[in-house]
Design a protein around this nucleic acid. Structure first.
Lengths: 157, 157
DNA sequence: GTTAAGTATCTCGATATCGAGATACTTTCG
DNA sequence: CGAAAGTATCTCGATATCGAGATACTTAAC
């Protein structure tokens, strides 16, 4: 009935599993925190990036919040409808649409961001600051390399 | 033009960002690998857990693949329709529905799993085995603690 | 033993996300 | 210049996922 204790198993596969689990658990914290303010995580992401970076073209926002372009349009539509974000045609590059917070949007995100940041601090507080920094470094390397490999087509034989 | 080098900024928030980015990048590898076989990641997840654990009640499968119960029903419906999985009423606990692979399902997952595992090995190969083990440990601690905190209601003030 | 609370599964409606393709503009290069 | 390739955004249809609630069964409490 017992399998013969696969001591050092498949580390890469296990790493993928714990990565997914950790992301899921932390993301639930994020989702719950953001839901307090009647926003979805993607909507919050747009507000937050505009809050910290100022006016940006849609494509720049899209790259930062990790959703496809059609979803970005959808979410921005909702934020514009709620009067939190405004669109403006790009000046130098007329393909672009520039996004910025409205005063109402700025007010909202300024009010809720600190509380959300605190929630996220608690969410990752299972690691001490020292280990958080270590995890930060490892995850950055892992993510950058995996992203780089996505373009190397040779990977799927 | 340069900001004054915010040397050690908000580590928890940055950790959350790189966690999300790393998950996204590795998940794209997973998705691309699985798409080769005409399956979605959740469908693959069900096949894989039944392949490695044998017959299981729906709730057990659900816990492992990290989706809500209604989505599990939806995905299992599709797999049953394709003849890859079968349902069977639970014996001891008659609330349960037991899931198991059909011969066709077992054949399929046995055929594709090794190739997918290889793809995931490449996806996380930005870290050496030593650092993979370190990341595994940190992510496990991070995930378990974050999951534990989800029930502590005191966290959102 | 009866009731209450808990758990497992499923149904149904709502919605967030995706992917393919359309359009408009920009950059590159012969 | 002018064509071709590349990029930014949006539209539209399809679908995966969720959340609330319904049903059936089990466990715990008294």
């Amino acid at each position: 009935m017992n399998r013969p204790a696969p001591i050092r198993r498949n580390v890469p596969l296990e790493l993928w599993v714990v990565l997914a689990r950790a992301f899921d658990a932390v993301e639930r914290h994020s989702r719950a925190s953001i839901a307090r303010f009647g926003l979805g995580t993607t909507e919050f992401g747009v507000l937050e990036v505009l809050y910290h970076k100022g006016e940006l073209p849609v494509c720049e926002v899209q790259r930062r919040i990790l959703v496809e372009s059609s979803s970005t349009t959808y979410v921005v539509d909702k934020l514009v409808a709620r009067g939190l974000v405004r669109r403006r045609p790009g000046q130098e590059d007329r393909r672009e649409v520039l996004l910025a917070l409205t005063p109402a949007g700025r007010l909202l995100i300024a009010r809720i961001f600190p509380s959300h940041a605190a929630a996220m601090r608690r969410a990752v507080s299972g690691l001490s600051p020292r280990w958080q920094a270590q995890a930060l470094d490892l995850l950055r390397r892992l993510g950058l390399d995996a992203a780089r490999r996505l373009h190397h087509k040779g990977d799927l034989p």
